[in-house]
């Protein structure tokens, strides 16, 4: 069943459809949220808020973008809201994500940890562009539409993110 049809079913109150959308998109939303917030517990909070927002607002989906992109847009708003709350509330830092895979070499793990730290060293605006381009493989036009900024801004954020990442990782 297509994502769009599932959203329509969610709008009619079908929990099974919400569960299917979660199975299809929960991980991408979580990883996006983790990239934005940098913390597991905050990313989990963002995923919850995103799918609850989907449950309440499925009827407002206009079908102008892919459901996955629409969900990432919701997640982004939720992520930024959570980050704003964090700054106000001053919660203690949480545990970083567990990147290690025992089957992989120590060298590869060290490299991934270094890349993750470098990504987290970017601004939130740069991190979201990096995720949407490199993980989601979204064209810059779609990213601009999702973020509500001009295409030139997306390219500029990526340009600076790329330079910063290259500096840190070189």
């Amino acid at each position: 069943m297509a994502d769009r049809e599932l959203v329509q079913r969610v709008a009619r109150g079908e929990e099974e459809a919400l569960g299917e959308l979660y199975r299809r998109h929960g991980t991408r939303v979580f990883r996006f949220a983790l990239t934005i917030t940098g913390r597991m517990e905050l990313a989990e909070e963002v995923v919850q808020e995103t799918f609850v927002a989907l449950w309440k607002g499925a009827g407002s989906y206009a079908g102008r973008s892919q459901v996955s992109t629409w969900l990432l847009g919701i997640a982004r708003n939720q992520g930024l809201a959570v980050l704003r709350g964090e700054r106000k509330g001053g919660r203690a830092p949480g545990a970083p994500p567990e990147l290690a895979d025992p089957a992989k070499t120590v060298h590869a793990e060290e490299k991934r940890a270094a890349v993750w730290c470098a990504v987290q060293g970017l601004s939130a605006e740069q991190r979201e562009v990096v995720f949407l381009a490199f993980y989601e493989a979204l064209p810059y036009r779609e990213i601009a539409s999702l973020l509500g900024v001009p295409e030139g801004t997306v390219k500029s954020r990526m340009y600076h993110a790329k330079r910063k990442l290259a500096e840190v990782l070189s």
Binding site: G26, R31, E44, L99
Partner: peptide
């Protein structure tokens, strides 16, 4: 390198 790193990020736990 960034793709590999992001693809190794965990999935949400069942409690979510």
């Amino acid at each position: 390198a960034v793709q590999e790193t992001l693809r190794e990020l965990p999935s949400p736990g069942e409690r979510v």
